[in-house]
Design a protein around this nucleic acid. Structure first.
Length: 398
RNA sequence: GCUGGGUUCGCAUAGCGGCAAUUGCAUCUGGCUGUAGACCAGACGGUCGUAAGGCCUACGGGGGUUCGAGUCCCUCACCCAGCA
């Protein structure tokens, strides 16, 4: 049986008036101080960075993906190597996404099949109550994902935190469809919960299961979903179905509408959010952890984060180092930043690396962005502990 | 000196009588929020117009043939290759 002590969530400080809180999640592989940002390492790697880089950049936990790791290298291989963390040589906690997001992200994709007929187009994703049939974006092969299968794969992957299989709908979607998907997600939540508690277990540590709230941009559905998911025996609660094309206001409403139903004593994860201004709002909304691809994706595209005073709401704290005005800039990316990249490299050099498409460009920019976000969240954590969150927020966003 | 090939929007290319003219690179602009993403989209002679579209200037220089010329002919200049 799994060791129940391998998962624990404690609240260190809870603001009496606001929803904000500082906490600590204990897992078999380490502690996560919350609020926490979770860098995304879909295929078992945070693109461009070594675990050592990530540790230096103050990452506490990494986010892998069930669908992608199932396609390759396959969960059995990961299991054989002692689970995701050990396989990728990450000495810390991990969390895996269930594949529910790929229902959305691969949903619009149509694949051309040449074998039968001439260039027949098929949907890559086919959703049924039983589960979802994906066509591999790599080779077109069919893969059935059900809650049972997703959880089984995640058990083999062995992350400390795992997610129920859900259906993430695109924006915009009708109320009717969003409701159907939500109800499906609820049924899948029950099934995910059941299998997660059932033997066999492939690793000696406990894997905490998070249920996922859906409901799109509709208040009644968000409330219903929050109530439903919160009443189940999950270890944590995730809010999904955001960052799919809705407005920031709609994203924040999704959190606010769910909030009244969220159990106080369980950690809350927000899926897929991580722009600078969102980070403040989301934490203020009572979120304990959130993952986002932005720091690494932007890193690869040459968009790096800068703090105040240069960075502000207007420029969204972004600097495009590809731009010619960086070509002779002797400054580091961000003067206030304490990361290795800002201590050692000029904008001009990083600009050059991007123009020359040198691999180091992607690494340095990703490293800085991950550090930047983690450091920001750390400062937010400290500000909450010192009861100075609002002041700190104003210094950044006004 | 002879023979052959070449000179097109920053660079490199396509074009073989209807062309403001192909493609790649470069450049510029925009977009990325649980990663089909070191990606995608747009602009790229000038000018007027919100737009459809109009006007001007352009395929090394000059001349010619033609309703019409990067495209055919003559000539000059320069570059490359082979032979002397």
């Amino acid at each position: 049986m799994q060791n129940a002590k391998d998962f624990k969530f404690e609240i260190i400080v809870k603001d009496k008036k606001a929803k904000i809180r500082v906490g600590k999640i204990t897992t078999a592989h380490g502690i996560i101080e919350t609020p926490a940002f979770v860098p995304v390492g879909t295929k078992g790697t945070v693109k461009g960075l070594t675990p050592q880089d990530l540790r230096e950049a103050e990452a506490q936990i990494l986010f892998g993906n069930t669908y992608h790791l199932h396609l390759r290298p396959g969960e059995d291989i990961v299991k054989k190597f002692g689970g995701l963390a050990k396989f990728m040589s990450w000495n810390g906690p991990t969390i895996t996404d269930s594949g529910g997001f790929q229902v959305f992200s691969l949903g619009q994709l149509k694949m051309k099949l040449t074998e039968e007929g001439e260039g027949t187009q098929v949907n890559v994703v086919n959703i049924k109550d039983e589960g979802v049939i994906f066509r591999s974006h790599i080779d077109g092969s069919k893969h059935l994902f059900t809650p049972e299968i997703s959880i089984e794969i995640q058990k083999k992957l062995g992350a400390d935190l795992i997610l129920a299989f859900d259906e993430c709908v695109p924006h915009p979607s009708t109320h009717e469809y969003t409701r159907e998907a939500m109800e499906r997600t609820h049924k899948w939540a029950l099934r995910s919960l059941t299998v997660s508690q059932r033997k066999p277990f492939y690793h000696p540590w406990r894997q905490a299961l998070y249920g996922i709230i859906q409901g799109g941009v509709y208040q009644d559905l968000r409330e219903k979903s929050a109530k439903f998911i919160s009443n189940l025996d999950f270890d944590g609660i995730a809010i999904g179905g955001v960052s799919v094309g809705e407005s920031k206001l709609e994203m924040r409403q999704a959190i606010d509408w769910s909030y009244p139903f969220l159990p106080e004593n369980k950690p809350r994860h927000l899926l897929g959010i991580g722009e600078i201004d969102d980070i403040f709002d989301v934490i203020e909304g009572g979120i304990d952890s959130f993952d986002c691809v932005i720091p690494t994706r932007f890193g690869r595209y040459g968009i790096v984060f800068v703090g105040p005073p240069e960075g502000n709401i207007k420029n969204r704290f972004r600097l495009d180092v590809n731009k010619t005005n960086c070509a002779r800039d002797k400054n580091p990316i961000s003067k206030e930043c304490l990361c290795y990249v800002c201590a050692n490299f000029t904008r001009a050099y990083i600009h050059h690396l991007f123009r020359a498409q040198e691999l180091l460009a992607y690494r340095l920019a990703s490293y800085h962005n991950i550090f930047f976000i983690n450091n920001l969240v750390k400062k937010i954590r400290e500000s909450i502990l010192e009861d100075k969150f609002q002041r700190f927020k104003r210094a950044w966003l006004e």
